[in-house]
Amino acid sequence: MLTKKYWQDKDVALLVGKTLRTGVLCAMGITIVGALIYLFHNAGGKPEYHVFKGADLSLRHLPGILTGVTHFDGMAIIQLGVVILIATPVVRVMLSAIGFLIEKDYMYVFITLLVLSIIIGNMLAGLGG
């Protein structure tokens, strides 16, 4: 199935499209579930976003979000949906790296990994402070 003409291959383009669609639908579905739980508990509350306090500390990193999800916390479930959405373009970059590797285009394997490492390095460096 995977030939040298990897990126002209319709099947692979469709695979990428399918992956994106799955990611987007997954993110949407999870967010909707979270939204229903969140609104069930908070619908009557007052939104206070005119002063910046920042999202709850537990919602700023994956371990905290996952802990919240196991407690069926609506906000944490929404945030999980958001994280999955953020991950979709990153997964697409990873698929490209595999594609270039199959093509034996090592210059572009390097370039793709460089882009990936900028994103992941950015995440791990804790620049968020």
């Binding site: 967010t31 979270g34 939204a35 969140y38 908070n42 939104p47 976003y49 306090k53 920042g54 999202a55 709850d56 500390l57 919602l59 700023r60 990193h61 609506g74 906000m75 944490a76 929404i78 945030q79 949906g81 958001v82 994280v83 953020i86 995440m123 804790g126 620049l127 968020g128 402070g129």
Partner: peptide
């Protein structure tokens, strides 16, 4: 921005 708390579920959703 996620780590900085800019992404709030109540608005992002």
């Amino acid at each position: 921005y996620l780590q900085r708390g800019y992404i709030d579920p109540g608005i992002a959703m």
